[in-house]
């Protein structure tokens, strides 16, 4: 049963990311549900249990990016995922909306900052946009809610 939920979730996620979100651009950017989903998983489950998903999602993002470097998104997602997990466990123990928003904000920023650092090291083009961070943040709560429900149902 578990695998059916996972496959269904991935199909919906890819459909929204590939088919729908590119048409909902704000100031030239649109959110990345793959990053938000990995951060949500890292909050909901221990990061070690999400390890494989982080590698798969990171590999997917790396292959489908213009820079020809494998590992940039994997490392950024891994770093952001671990950070979010520990923040949620140690710093923001109170599970209220504000702590969740702050956790997501730090996680999203961590992902883009790590990507930016790696882009400087490996000299490839990377655009850091605060609009993108905010857009991702807005979608992070609904995605988190859906994933939480899915994990509870499962």
């Amino acid at each position: 049963m578990k695998i059916i939920y996972i496959i269904f979730f991935i199909i919906i996620l890819l459909f929204l990311q590939i088919g729908i979100l590119p048409h909902l651009k704000i100031l030239g950017v649109f959110p990345n549900l793959i990053i938000i989903s990995i951060l949500s998983l890292s909050i909901l489950k221990e990061w070690k249990k999400n390890f494989v998903w982080i590698i798969i999602a990171g590999l997917f993002l790396d292959v489908y990016s213009l820079n020809n470097i494998i590992g940039v998104s994997i490392i950024s997602l891994l770093g952001a995922g671990i950070l979010v997990y520990f923040l949620n466990q140690n710093t923001f123990k109170k599970a209220n909306i504000l702590s969740l928003i702050i956790t997501f904000l730090i996680g999203i920023l961590a992902f883009y900052i790590l990507s930016l650092i790696l882009s400087l090291i490996f000299s490839f083009s990377f655009t850091f946009s605060i609009v993108l961070v905010i857009y991702n943040l807005i979608l992070s709560l609904p995605v988190f809610w859906v994933m939480k429900k899915a994990i509870i149902i499962k």
Binding site: Q17, I18, K25, G28, V29, S65, T127
Partner: peptide
């Protein structure tokens, strides 16, 4: 067969 889904949609496959 693919359009950029991550940043500014400035490349295609």
């Amino acid at each position: 067969i693919w359009k950029d889904i991550q940043e500014n949609q400035d490349w295609i496959l």
